Computed example of a mutant assay.
Amino acid sequence: MSLAFIFPGQGSQAIGMGQELAQAFASAREVFQEVDDALEQKLSLLMRDGPEDQLTLTENAQPALMAVSLAVMRTLEKEFGVNIGRAAFVAGHSLGEYSALAAAGAISLSDTARLLKLRGQAMQRAVPVGQGAMASLIGPKTDLALAEAAAAAGSEVGVCVVANDNNSGNVVISGEKAAVDRAIEKAKELGARAIPLNVSAPFHCPLMQPAADEMARALAEATFKAPGAPVVTNIQAQPTNDPEVLRRLLVEQVTGRVRWRESMIWMAGEGGVTRFAEAGAGKVLTGMAKRIAPDADAVSLNAPADLESFAKSL
């Protein structure tokens, strides 16, 4: 069995996430405290009690989701003896790539928390509220070619690109609102359903360049080490161990496409991965894994019982 740990992105957050882990394991509580200390913010209380509109803010959701993922990983290691060395690869969806890097020891937990706080703030600053938009194109006819055609139609009136190639039947577009609206019309003509997303900014598109510039400056000052497992990156959909390449790709990722479908296909194919374990809040990536790589096993790890049964199965 070849194992890959995968880490969720924004949208998986929910009030109460990580609380079962915190109640059951001191190692999880340590992670949440370290993140609180790094941010000089009681993020763990916000995660536990809300309000939801504050947790959903990008600058809070991003470090919070990372904290839950890292609480899972530290608990697996400290309580069950399962360390990152058991994985052939790690990968994360958008902000989840930071979780993957932290889990693999490439960036410290405190640095990762601060970088994600800044990433959320920088993305929010990059485009005034209401000027950008994102939409999910879904349905059996939806594939990358259809999404590219819809984005091309949108590009006739403004910036519009494919932001997330999640899986066949689920592709996200992003850009200026008028352009995304035009792309939605085209997608419907082509036979897809289109759902406008309730997001605060148009992520993973060229409008995020000011945020990419901010992250380039911050990442240049962060300490990177070789990860304990190769990281299959969003930008390349290929693995790398090179700290400087990982640093550069995190900058490119702010404006670039999340090539998740390709990443999963590579891991399940050339990478030989037969089991995907989603470490963190929710089960979004587990569902995607089952659609993209149906021959592989996929499990979500976010409750104490999940961790125990997973450790016993190894």
Score class of each variant (00 low, 15 high):
V82R: 05
A104W: 10
G96F: 04
K78A: 13
V31A: 03
S69E: 06
V68K: 06
L65T: 10
L101M: 09
K42W: 14
V129M: 12
D53C: 14
T112E: 10
Q23I: 11
L46H: 12
T75G: 04
G139S: 06
L95K: 03
G139P: 08
P51S: 02
D111G: 02
K117V: 09
E77N: 14
S94E: 02
D37A: 15
L116E: 07
A26K: 13
G50A: 01
F25K: 01
G92N: 03
A87K: 02
V82H: 00
F89H: 04
M66E: 08
A22S: 14
A102E: 01
A91C: 09
D111K: 00
G139Q: 05
P140G: 14
Q23L: 15
D111P: 03
A145K: 12
M73P: 09
M134C: 02
I15Q: 10
G18Q: 08
D53S: 14
E40W: 13
Q124K: 15
E97N: 05
G16F: 07
V72K: 04
L116W: 09
A61M: 09
V35M: 04
S27E: 04
R29L: 05
L46K: 12
F89P: 05
G132D: 06
R48V: 13
E148A: 10
Q62F: 12
K117T: 04
A22W: 10
L21C: 07
E52S: 13
A113T: 02
Q124M: 10
A71S: 10
D49Q: 15
A135Y: 03
A147P: 04
L109F: 07
L43C: 08
A38G: 01
Q124E: 09
A147L: 08
L76E: 05
V127R: 04
A104M: 06
V72C: 00
T112F: 12
E97V: 08
K141P: 08
S136F: 07
G50P: 09
L45A: 14
L101I: 08
P51W: 09
T112G: 15
M73T: 09
G139Y: 01
Q124T: 14
T58L: 13
Q41V: 13
Q124R: 14
E59A: 13
A145P: 01
Q19D: 11
G18H: 08
M73S: 05
V82W: 09
M123A: 06
A135R: 01
G120F: 10
L21V: 08
S44R: 06
G120M: 09
L70N: 01
S27A: 07
N60G: 10
V72D: 01
T56M: 15
G105H: 03
K42M: 11
Q62N: 05
V127D: 00
